[in-house]
């Protein structure tokens, strides 16, 4: 059970002077139950890639298949499969239109004909999974705080019970506590077997929790692997706009001085390694 992209290419404004190749032969597999981060700087094609996963864009060359089914955009099948792959856009709270949070969350499932008790349980599940305060269901979505809005927006996608969840820059505009809460929530979802695909330019967030990371540069996949592999790849081959988090680049410097410490190990582990090295030196 997976989403498979094979040699996907996509360009905007084809045939005009503003032609812009966003994706250039990207292949990718998203397995059910894993957390994949797609990292890249602005304009690297990561948002375009996210829209392919959700079948909003169809590749100009290459193929997209969901759970073994080859998908063509504009067909009934594409719309059906769109339900399996929830896409949370960047600043998803800017899609709000309903008068209450409940109406907003009911929008997606009711578009697929879910009614009555089923609809209610969809909403309840989504609210508890997203950590939204149930008391806010009756509130006006525009009256919520920033963090609550983001949760409500994610809940409105979760309510259609997707099997894959793709998020485009989910942490944009959130403060540190908000980012921590959000990544915690995504971990919980992954624990329950949902595939989480997080598109981000923030390497720190990507390296911390993902199972696998894919780095994009100018529409090409330049590296793919575990967070540790990607961190050491990027330490050796810097990619424009992708800065290693301070801990990782510090760990990388320590390595060059013979102190071997994983790049993604965090401040406490690095401090410990340094302490050990000092003890040995004495």
């Amino acid at each position: 059970m997976s989403i498979k992209l094979d040699g996907v290419s996509y360009a905007y404004n084809v045939g005009t002077p503003a032609e812009n190749v966003a994706l250039d032969g990207v292949s990718l597999v998203v397995e059910r139950g894993e957390w994949l981060s797609i990292v890249g700087h602005t304009g690297s094609g990561k948002s375009t890639l996210a829209q392919h996963l959700n079948l909003l864009l169809s590749p100009q060359s290459g193929t997209v298949s969901v759970d073994g089914e080859l998908v063509q955009i504009g067909t009934k099948a594409a719309r059906g499969l769109r339900r399996k792959v929830g896409l949370v856009f960047q600043y998803p709270e800017s899609q709000f239109f309903a008068e209450t949070v409940r109406d907003e969350i009911e929008f997606a499932p009711s578009n697929w004909g879910v009614k009555g008790d089923d609809l209610k349980s969809c909403v309840d599940e989504a609210v508890s999974a997203s950590g939204l305060d149930p008391a806010l269901l009756a509130a006006n979505p525009f009256a919520l705080s920033g963090g609550q809005r983001r949760r409500a927006a994610i809940a409105s996608v979760l309510a259609m019970r997707p099997e894959y969840l793709v998020l485009d820059e989910p942490t944009a505009g959130l403060d540190a506590a908000g980012i921590r809460d959000l990544t915690g929530m995504l971990s919980d979802l992954r624990e329950r077997g949902m595939a989480v695909v997080q598109v981000t330019h923030d390497l720190g967030v990507a390296l911390e929790r993902s199972d696998r990371v894919l780095a994009l540069e100018r529409g090409r996949a330049v590296a793919e692997g575990t967070p540790e592999e990607i961190a050491s790849y990027l330490a050796e081959n810097p990619v424009k706009g992708l800065l290693l988090p301070p801990c990782a680049s510090f760990a990388h410097r320590l390595r060059s001085r013979g102190i071997n410490v994983p790049l993604t190990s965090g401040a406490a582990a690095i401090a410990e390694a340094v302490e050990k090295a000092r003890a040995v030196m004495r």
Partner: peptide
């Protein structure tokens, strides 16, 4: 375009 797509991904037809 962005809002259209966002609502389509929530099943709007």
């Amino acid at each position: 375009d962005r809002i259209l797509k966002a609502q389509m991904s929530r099943g709007a037809d």
